[in-house]
Design a protein around this nucleic acid. Structure first.
Lengths: 132, 132
DNA sequence: AAGTAGTTTAGAACGATTTTAAAGTAAATA
DNA sequence: TATTTACTTTAAAATCGTTCTAAACTACTT
C-alpha cells in the first residue's frame, strides 16, 4: 500500500504536506524523533513547512495510529515510527531511547485493570545510566 | 526521624521553605502532584512561596531521592512521594496515575542492558482507557 | 559578631506547543 | 466544469511550564 492509500485508509486527506511527512516517516524504518528533528529533515529534503503544520500532522498521525508518542518525561515530545507494542531503554541523562522488542520482555504477572477501564497497552521502561 | 533530620541527612539545609514543603510531602502518604498542585497546597496552608523556589526545591528533593519524578509524556512534570520501585496505570485521556505496587508485577524476562550501561530502574506503565 | 556559602525571590527570559484568523486546497455537489 | 463546502496550512501571536538572573536574604562556620 502506498502512502496516499495509507493516509486515506486512516481517514486523512492526503495533502501535499502530509505526503511529505508520510514519505519521511512511513518507510518501515523504526526511528525516534521530535517535531524539530522532523522539520530539519523536511528542510534538508528541499521542502519547508510551518512548525504548526508539523505539530498538527504529528498529532493526527498519532491519533490515527500511524505513529506513536513515547512516554517519557523529557521536555520535548518524542515520537516513534515503531507502532508495534514494544519497550525502551532510556538514558535519563541524554534522553536517548533504545528499542526493546516485545519478545525480549516477558511479563508473568500483571495487576487487575481498575473497574470500568480497559487495558490500552503496556510499556516497560528500563532506565539506564552510563557506567563510570 | 523528623523532617529536619531527613533534610539534613539528604544533605539539604532545612530552610523555612524546604520545611514547609517537607511537612506537606514527607508524611508517608503516597501522592502524585505537579509544581502547581503543591503551590496551591502551600497557599491554602496559609503560607506562600515563589514558584521558582518550588521548582528548585522539587528538583533538589528529587535528586536526593526524597521524591521521584514520574516518566509520562504529559506537558507538566508529575512528582511522586512513593520512592519505592513501583509502577503505574495511566489514563492517557485525563493524565490520572494510579500506583501499582511492585509485587503486583512479575517480570520474568528482561533484555540484556546495553554494553557500558547500568540498570537504573524498571518502570511498567499500563495505559488504560475508560470503558464506553 | 563577622564572614561566606547557599537560598529565596520577582520578574524576565526561554523553549515547546497551541491558537488565531486569514488564505489556500481537496473533495463534494450542482 | 463551476461552485460550494469543509478541511488544511500558515505566520505570527499567545500560552504554558520551567529556568535564569541578579539582588536581597539566611543558615551555618569561624
Amino acid at each position: 500500500m502506498n502512502n496516499k492509500e495509507k493516509l486515506r485508509k486512516a481517514g486523512l486527506r492526503p495533502t501535499k504536506q502530509r505526503m511529505i511527512i508520510a514519505d519521511i516517516l512511513l518507510d518501515g524504518i523504526n526511528r525516534h524523533f521530535t517535531a524539530e528533528n522532523l522539520q530539519n529533515e523536511i528542510n534538508s529534503s528541499g521542502n519547508s513547512m510551518s512548525i504548526a503544520t508539523i505539530y498538527n500532522c504529528l498529532k493526527k498521525f498519532r491519533n490515527c495510529g500511524l505513529i506513536k508518542q513515547v512516554e517519557s518525561s523529557k521536555d520535548t515530545a518524542i515520537f516513534d515510527t515503531n507502532i508495534n507494542q514494544h519497550h525502551h531503554f532510556l538514558d535519563e541523562e541524554t534522553g536517548e531511547l533504545i528499542d526493546i522488542e516485545n519478545d525480549e520482555v516477558n511479563l508473568r504477572k500483571l495487576p487487575k485493570i481498575p473497574q470500568g477501564y480497559l487495558n490500552n497497552g503496556v510499556e516497560v521502561l528500563i532506565k539506564i545510566k552510563k557506567q563510570i
